[in-house]
Design a protein around this nucleic acid. Structure first.
Length: 911
RNA sequence: GCGGAUAUGGCGUAAUUGGUAGCCGCGCUAGAUUUAGGAUCUAGUGCCGUAAGGCGUGUGGGUUCGAGUCCCCCUAUCCGCACCA
């Protein structure tokens, strides 16, 4: 379509979509999750969310809002680097190429992005601010009392004057010292202590190590013991790594969910991921004077404890193990180390070893044996548990396996076959807890713990700190150098610390990260950090940068920040639920604490667009031949199923001529047909090059135009639903656009009448405006498109070609089909873009004023109409014959006999 | 195992949120136009039945004058968490 190129050019040359702060207009910020520009380019699934956000942006603009709608690229990360390792090409070059291709594809779809604000996470001007935020995190600690980040300098002051005792801060390890002790410590010792508190900290932690990728990964990048990228095995290892203290923000991240408009399922996913559980930490004294601390949510079951279990990695192990048992314990720990996370999950056989030590139950005074087993996780709670086999299925299985006692403490429960895990019943065998219900027991036990100083009531979170370093090249360098083995940040005014050139992107033979190859990678002759930041670093605050993308003095100016504040509407996929969307919220909360972000939450409303899957086609080759048999006959032969390019299949019928040309080996192919056709099999799968089911938006644009593609993607179904792409239905919306076009034309001539519109015509217009407006507001874009189709059909029936109707229609269609709307708008003689027009608001009173008829039932069409009678009756169901009912008629000529009215509202009409 | 979501014609879906289920589109059938194909236009199209009529929103129950919609029991599919104490 020539029209589309013409207007795309016009929009860009006249800066139609350039956005500036305008204090006379309310702001609205619409954001897409920016893409990772891969080499494969966009397929028709990618733009689904972009189209929706574009429609909403254009709609909001028409409603008089000053809309910020930017776009950029998430360009650091593994795929570009893997490609660089394979081909030796610099990732910057391939990334640049991919971005260019993405941009071309996006431009063809007619989006209203303000490209002046484009950001790329891999450009030094941008990652300067990622590094800046890191330095701020490095120089902050989390104060639990104030529930916010505070400067480390304040912490130092307190240490100097009062020591550590009055500090309640999130940290790796509680250290206890006085002010004098602090002052007596060496610089290095002090730095080591401070490292315990920093929000960005370096520590020896258990990490997910992926040997194949040669890097550590965050928890959300590992699923079932395999890396998300590539599916390589991941093992647990203790390594010195940078981490972000996300866990300190767990409660705020949880509470914030109640203040934002996200889907319930997404909130639920984040709640699960944060995993809050209320319970108690209880100290069990050991014979040597030490004690074991365990976390439990079931303090009420403490009289049912018959043994304790430690995780093999637990630091308690060394304190408990007796000399006689040492050899056994060491052997067991060695054997568990060999098992990867994946093996542990796949093979849940029960294993464990007795440590030889005993702990004392602080409630009953009884001694219970301490065991070691890998069913207890080092990373959760304290890495040690009190085992209550009668009421926990895992403890039960362990007790049965090793013949340990099982003491039920709930009245009349049967634990001969399995444990009784439900939190209900009356407590028995439990001293002072006897006779209470489970919830009462929990409360009473916690009180007892507090009063007798046996431990603390505590809330535990599953959410772990985010491991923040990667042993890779293509990421942000850390603005950190090492002196005397301790890290220090380089001064902020020297940012950005630009990624150096290296000759190879693979880790060095000595296991050093690629940055180890860089020449002069030092600061004041001190070595700089060799790791780089993970993918989520650059995507965590990009929404703030768009507000003021070219600012060299600050991440965002006060003025821009105060005007745009946060994202009103964020559109993107659910796959980021436990990654980007957690990190970004955390990052925002940190920036809020230091005064850079002005809102508690970055994304007010979030809509998850569904995935568009591919619809794969199959052919069936008889084994050992080059003969292909049609789907219906395939069972008569021994065949193998092969993917075939969906572009040479129409309606499941294979284009055999094009098939022969598709690949050289099929040139001589022969076919066994049914009904003279070759029918293909089909299946819904992920859209992917390797499955030959990719549909390219460029092809659709060439055949049908961008407006048709936009309309069709919206028409396919509700935005949040996943659905397979099927090009078949696209003719329907294309036909609609042509019908719409023809309303304005006599032959090829643009012709609209200036006559006044009739009531009937206005009704069609206003009904459509009302429906479309309501549908856009509720993100029901598919029904909005239907409403346009109905409208056009009705106007054709009415033979309406009046300016008074068609002009507003052009405006309300423009968010969906901006090119056609723009063309028609100019044909109307307008000199400015349709973007400057305003959405014709629906006048509620219109129908009532203009007609004594009122639609009562409305299923796309008004089925019958009558005057609206209002009669109040006090909630009782009342059947009555309305005084004027007999005088009214339904559209089909029937007359109502009886009208049932409840609370003044017609609820039924009997004919 | 825990939690969440979904279920409507041959297909994608819709239903004023408790009021004539199936709007809109695809597909299909018939007709018109066209040298043909494509395109376009007209009519029809939930199922059974020639018809009158009957049956229909995954299954079974319930509330209601009235249920796709609300409540309870199943079933299936999808998603999240999962040895989290």
């Amino acid at each position: 379509m020539r029209i589309e190129e013409k207007w795309q050019k016009y929009w860009s040359q006249n800066n139609i979509y350039k956005t500036d702060i305008d204090k006379f207009k309310p702001k609205y910020y619409v954001l897409d999750m920016f893409p990772y520009p891969s080499g494969a380019g966009l397929h028709v699934g990618h733009p689904l969310g972009y189209i929706a956000s574009d429609i909403y942006s254009r709609y909001k603009t028409l409603k008089g809002f000053n809309v910020l709608h930017p776009m950029g690229f998430d360009a650091f990360g593994l795929p570009a680097e893997q490609y660089a390792i394979e081909t030796g090409q610099h990732p910057e070059i391939t990334t640049e190429k991919n971005i260019k291709r993405y941009r071309e594809q996006l431009d063809k779809l007619g989006f209203c992005y303000d490209w002046d604000r484009e950001v790329r996470t891999c450009s030094p001007e941008y990652y300067k601010w990622t590094q800046w935020a890191f330095i701020r995190m490095f120089n902050s600690y989390y104060c639990n009392d104030a529930q916010q980040a505070r400067p480390v300098s304040e912490l130092i002051k307190v240490f100097e004057t009062e020591g550590s005792s009055c500090i309640n801060a999130a940290c790796n390890e509680q250290c206890v010292f006085t002010a004098n002790e602090w002052k007596a410590k060496s610089e290095k010792e002090q730095q080591e202590i401070l490292m315990n508190y920093r929000i960005a900290y370096l520590a020896d932690t258990m990490v997910n190590w992926c040997a194949t990728l040669g890097t550590v990964l965050a928890n959300d990048e590992v699923v079932n013991g395999l890396s998300v990228r590539g599916g390589f095995p991941v093992e647990q290892r203790k390594m010195r790594q940078w981490s972000l203290r996300v866990s300190a923000y767990a409660q705020r991240l949880l509470d914030g969910l109640d203040t934002i408009e996200w889907t319930e399922s997404l909130k639920e996913t984040q709640k699960n991921w944060i995993g809050r559980s209320e319970g108690a930490e209880i100290r069990f004294p050991l014979s040597g004077g030490d004690s074991l601390t365990v976390f439990t949510t079931r303090a009420d079951t403490i009289f049912g404890v018959t043994f304790m279990v430690l995780a093999p990695e637990s630091e308690y192990v060394a304190k408990v193990v007796t000399p006689e048992q040492k050899a056994n314990v060491d052997a067991y720990i060695e054997s568990t180390k060999k098992r990867t996370e994946r093996e542990r999950i796949a093979d849940r056989r029960i294993s464990g070893v007795f440590s030889g030590g005993y702990a004392v139950n602080p409630f009953s005074g009884e001694e219970v044996p301490v065991w070691i087993s890998d069913y207890v996780l080092a990373g959760y709670g304290t890495g040690a548990i009190m085992a209550v086999p009668a009421h926990d299925s895992r403890d039960y299985a362990f007790a049965k396996h090793f013949g340990l006692p099982i003491i039920p403490i709930i009245e009349a429960c049967d634990v001969s076959e399995e444990s009784f895990d439900a939190k209900e019943g009356i407590i028995v065998n439990s001293g002072f807890l006897n006779g209470l219900t489970v919830p009462e027991g929990i409360r009473k036990a916690r009180e007892y713990i507090r009063e007798n100083n046996l431990g603390t009531v505590k809330v535990n979170y599953r959410l772990r700190d985010a491991i923040f370093s990667r042993q890779r090249y293509w990421g942000e360098p850390f603005p950190v150098y090492y002196k005397d083995g301790m890290p220090y940040n380089i001064p902020e005014e020297l940012l950005p610390l630009v990624l150096p050139e290296v000759d190879k992107f693979l880790p060095t033979e000595t296991g050093e990260p690629p940055l180890g190859r860089a020449k002069n990678w030092t600061y004041n002759s001190c070595p700089l950090e060799l790791g780089t930041m993970p993918g989520f670093a650059g995507s965590s605050a990009y929404y703030l940068r768009y507000m003021d993308a070219h600012n060299t003095e600050a991440l965002v100016s006060k003025e821009a920040d105060e005007y745009w504040r946060n994202v009103d509407l964020y559109i993107g996929g659910t796959e980021h639920a436990t990654g980007h969307l957690i990190y970004s919220r955390f990052w925002n909360k940190f920036l809020y604490d230091i005064g850079t972000a002005l809102e508690h939450e970055p994304f007010k409303k979030l809509v998850n667009q569904g995935m568009i899957q591919g619809c794969s086609s199959f052919v069936y080759r008889i084994k050992g031949t080059n003969t292909f048999v049609s789907h219906g006959l395939k069972d008569r032969y021994d065949t193998s199923e092969l993917h075939v390019d969906v572009n040479i299949v129409n309606n499941n019928i294979l284009d055999t001529k094009r098939f022969k040309l598709w690949r050289p080996e099929y040139e001589t192919a022969e076919f066994i047909l049914e009904d003279n056709e070759y029918r293909c099999g089909s299946a819904v799968e992920k859209m992917s090059k390797s499955l030959y089911n990719v549909v390219n938006p460029d092809d659709i644009v060439v055949t049908y135009g961008a407006d048709t593609l936009r309309l069709y993607e919206m028409f396919l179904g509700p935005i949040e639903q996943s659905k397979p792409w099927d090009t078949k239905g696209i003719d329907g919306v294309h036909r609609f656009l042509r019908k719409f076009w023809r309303l304005f034309h006599h032959g090829d001539e643009f012709f609209v009448s200036d006559e006044a519109a009739t009531g009937e015509e206005l009704k069609v217009l206003h009904k459509t405006i009302k429906k479309v407006q309501a549908d856009i507001e509720s993100f029901s874009f598919n029904t909005a498109v239907s409403a346009f189709m109905i409208c056009v059909n009705e106007l054709i029936d009415l033979k309406c070609n009046k300016r008074a109707v068609l002009e507003p229609l052009t405006v309300i269609l423009s968010p969906f089909a901006p090119h056609i709307a723009e063309e028609l708008w100019h044909l109307f003689g307008k000199t400015e873009s349709v973007v400057k027009a305003s959405f014709p608001g629906y006048d509620e009173s219109f129908l009532v004023e203009n007609s004594f008829e009122y639609p009562i039932s409305f299923n796309g069409k008004t089925r019958f109409k009558m005057e609206l009678p209002l009669d109040d009756s006090s909630g009782q169901i009342e059947e009555k014959v309305l005084a004027n009912a007999q005088t009214q008629k339904f559209m089909d000529g029937r007359q109502p006999k009886k009208v049932i009215v409840v609370k003044g509202k017609i609820v039924n009409i009997v004919v």
